[in-house]
């Protein structure tokens, strides 16, 4: 994280030394883009704050820990698609789930959709890539996540042929 700041500051300074105008233009572009996307970010933050309230960790642990593994996989992929979690929350959570005996297949469905599919980030993605690409990308990635989960199930011997 610190490295990122350092690199950015150094790059801005170098850029400024080489060409003042261009650097100012770059910073203007940054501010303009940032302010343009702010409403979408705000929408996303509002959505995520509500979604995480509705699906707290305890509830996720409860629903993924019980019942049929195929149904759990499906539920896991849906929860992963809807919610958004930084890795430092998601993976420890997955670790807890694993200790409670949740199959790798279910965890794979959860973490892969969490990373690849973003219903919450929809407003931002649409701003940058357009609505059509956003829908196609998310559907494709959902399918990929399901395939990954099934293969994981095979590799760990959780589902037989």
């Amino acid at each position: 994280m610190l490295i990122l700041y350092l690199v950015t500051v150094i790059l801005v300074i170098i850029s400024f030394i080489i060409n003042k105008q261009k650097t100012i233009k770059a910073l203007k572009i940054a501010i303009k883009k940032f302010s343009k996307i702010m409403p979408a970010f705000l929408t996303m933050l509002i959505l995520i704050s509500i979604v995480l309230y509705v699906f707290p960790q305890e509830l996720i642990i409860k629903y993924l820990g019980i019942g049929n593994k195929y149904i759990s996989t499906l539920i896991a992929s849906l929860i992963g698609s809807i919610t958004l979690m930084p890795g430092f929350i998601a993976f420890p959570l997955a670790g807890i789930l694993h200790q409670q005996g949740v199959p790798y297949m279910v965890l794979s469905a959860f973490t892969t959709t969490l990373m690849l599919v973003g219903i919450i980030t929809f407003p931002i993605e649409r701003e940058f890539l357009g609505i059509k690409i956003t829908i196609i990308r998310n559907l494709t990635c959902f399918a990929i996540a399901i395939i990954v989960a099934i293969v994981t199930g095979f590799v760990f011997g959780e589902i037989g042929i």
């Binding site: 950015t8 850029s15 650097t23 910073l27 572009i29 501010i31």
Partner: peptide, 10 residues
């Protein structure tokens, strides 16, 4: 966004 700005001009 600052990095993106630099990218765009350079």
């Amino acid at each position: 966004f600052v990095l993106i700005g630099l990218f765009e001009v350079w």
